[in-house]
Amino acid sequence: MKILVPLKQTVDLVEELELNDDGTDVEREYLTFKLNEWDEQALEEALLIKDAVGAEVTVVALDEPDADQSLYGARAKGADRAVKLTGDFAAGVSSHARAAILARFLESQGFDLVLIGVQTPEDLDGQTGVILAGMLGLPHASVAVAVEPEGDAFKVTQEMGAGVTHQLSIIGPAVVGVQAAREAPRYVPISRIRAAMQEGGLEQQPAAEVEVLSGLTVRRMFAPQSSSHAEMLGGDAEAAAARIIEIIRERGALKV
């Protein structure tokens, strides 16, 4: 069984997001990037399948900031192949363009299953996985919390909200958007990632030239202006705690 896991580098949300000069995108140059947290879940689900029944797991990433780190991290965790698609992606890549690039890559590979993060924080034009499935006319399921091989099919558990799940049986090749792996993503120490880097073996090939546009034009980006921002409690932790107690007492939430 061949499983493909696309990895995307995405802006670390803990950081301050600055806008570019015309205010239409984040200023990417000075930001730190990290592996999209949902892609990490997708990778874990792929490795769980590999552990259980055996599979060849290939991770593939566009040449975006620190992609090598994520690709080697995946190798250290147990991915069999790591492929970097080269090109100039400095301006950011829309989900549609990304899906089109991945579609061309997939056409050159045999695969049974694509596991990809259910979303990224920057999916203005939608989620790559399902767009990819649509482009290739493949069956798909999004918001998955378990993907398990069962005979010649995959049993996919899809989360519907409020604790309800649906169970689907899908015959591959298929694309599944992973919300959470069955287990928390495994940890590899940085020394193992360094060792994987030293070993090398990253496959590189140019990304396909695609003409696909998202069809969207960003007029501006802005921080949401809430009509009711919280009243901030100053002071140290002790002072803040004292104020909180006053407030909840006033509101009658503290019964003393």
Binding site: V118, G126, S142, Q158
Partner: peptide, 20 residues
């Protein structure tokens, strides 16, 4: 979940733009 599953797939199938 239904929307996250079909909106992108319909966009991918039809080439229509998608605003998420």
């Amino acid at each position: 979940t239904v929307g996250m599953d079909v909106a992108g797939a319909v966009s991918g199938r039809t080439g229509r733009p998608l605003v998420a």
